[in-house]
Structure formats: C-alpha cells, structure tokens
Simulated assay, not measured.
Amino acid sequence: MSDVTHEIPERIPVHLVVNGVGHTLDLIPWTTLLDALRDHLALTGTKKGCDHGQCGACTVLVNGRRVNSCLTLAVMKDGAEITTIEGLAKNGALHPLQQAFIDHDAFQCGYCTPGQICSAAGLLAEGRAKDADEIRELMSGNLCRCGAYPNIVAAIEQAMSRS
C-alpha cells in the first residue's frame, strides 16, 4: 500500500451578496450554499431538510431564480445575489407572500415555510402560473409534511392577485 497524504484543502474566497449585503467568505470547495448561509452567515431561516434536493426546504433565490441551496456549491455562485427568507421583508413590512401565508394560515409546523415562500416568490417573478393547478404543479418541488397545501395555494393566489 502506498502512503496517502491528506492535505487540508485550500479555502477559496467566495463573494456573495446576501439580502443586499456583500460578504466574502473563505470556504472549502465543497461547502454548499445552504451551509454557507446557515453556518457562516448565521442565516438560519433557510432549512436543511432532506439534503438531497427533494423537499425544497432549502429554497432560496439566486439572482431572482429559485434554487435548492443544498445542491448548490457556494463557489458556483461567486458574485451572485442571494435572497433568503430573512431578506424578503423590506423596511419593516412583510413581503406580500409572508403576509398571505399568515392570512391563510399556510403553515403548521413552519419548517417548510421559508422554502415555500422563497419558491413562491420565484414563481411569481417567473409569471408562469395562471391558476391553482399551475401553482400546484410549479410548487411541486416544495413538500409540506403537515399537508397545508390548500392554504399554501390560497396564499400564493392572494399574492398573485395583489402583484
């Protein structure tokens, strides 16, 4: 057997603009965007659910597009603008989707709610959903284990009607 030398990987500087604030982080190459947000920037609103891109709890907006942050390496998003659930409210006022989720009681345990809201914000920006069936289809990557789907759809419809 040959000797195997394990070197500590070099850290890579990664610049992210998160919720309007620039950050340069020195990260090991395999740091996910999710871990960069939670562990390096203390933005714990974005949740780690399945860690396989199947539940959507980790959804954030990257340059306005919804992304599963658990499947995205932070180094891939160097220079990107990231919006998390913490960055949706402006000047102390809730984002219309945040308010709609409250109005429609569109959560029970709340674990999936940040990912649901970020995904819905991306959905609204895409402008592709025209009715409840299309909302359900285009939000199908975000799971709610509590089954609050009817209220989630109603909340998104409310936000669509007001935008």
Results as ranks from 00 to 15, higher is better:
1 M>Y: 08
1 M>H: 08
5 T>V: 15
7 E>D: 13
8 I>M: 11
9 P>Y: 12
10 E>T: 02
11 R>D: 10
11 R>C: 14
12 I>G: 11
13 P>T: 09
14 V>Q: 05
16 L>Y: 08
16 L>C: 14
17 V>H: 14
18 V>S: 10
20 G>M: 11
21 V>H: 14
22 G>V: 15
25 L>W: 01
25 L>Y: 06
26 D>R: 13
28 I>H: 13
28 I>Q: 12
29 P>K: 09
29 P>W: 05
30 W>R: 14
31 T>C: 12
32 T>E: 02
34 L>N: 14
34 L>I: 09
37 L>F: 08
39 D>P: 00
40 H>E: 11
40 H>T: 10
41 L>E: 03
41 L>D: 00
44 T>V: 06
45 G>A: 07
49 G>L: 06
51 D>K: 06
52 H>I: 13
52 H>E: 07
53 G>V: 13
53 G>M: 07
53 G>D: 07
55 C>I: 09
55 C>P: 06
56 G>P: 03
56 G>N: 05
57 A>Y: 05
58 C>S: 00
58 C>H: 00
58 C>M: 00
60 V>W: 00
62 V>T: 04
63 N>S: 10
64 G>V: 11
66 R>L: 01
67 V>H: 03
70 C>F: 04
72 T>I: 03
73 L>I: 07
75 V>R: 15
76 M>R: 12
77 K>G: 01
77 K>W: 05
78 D>V: 04
79 G>R: 02
79 G>I: 13
80 A>R: 04
80 A>W: 05
81 E>T: 11
85 I>E: 02
86 E>S: 03
87 G>W: 04
87 G>N: 02
88 L>T: 01
90 K>A: 13
92 G>S: 10
93 A>T: 07
94 L>S: 07
94 L>P: 14
94 L>Q: 06
95 H>L: 14
95 H>F: 09
96 P>D: 03
97 L>F: 04
97 L>S: 05
98 Q>H: 05
98 Q>F: 06
102 I>E: 08
104 H>E: 05
104 H>P: 04
109 C>G: 06
111 Y>K: 02
112 C>R: 08
112 C>I: 10
112 C>D: 02
113 T>G: 09
115 G>K: 05
115 G>H: 12
117 I>D: 04
118 C>V: 00
118 C>A: 11
120 A>M: 06
121 A>V: 15
121 A>M: 04
122 G>F: 08
126 E>L: 06
126 E>Q: 14
129 A>R: 11
131 D>Q: 09
131 D>E: 07
132 A>D: 12
132 A>F: 08
136 R>Q: 12
137 E>P: 00
139 M>G: 09
142 N>T: 13
149 Y>Q: 10
152 I>G: 07
152 I>V: 08
154 A>S: 12
155 A>Q: 06
157 E>H: 03
158 Q>N: 07
161 S>L: 15
162 R>P: 01
163 S>G: 07
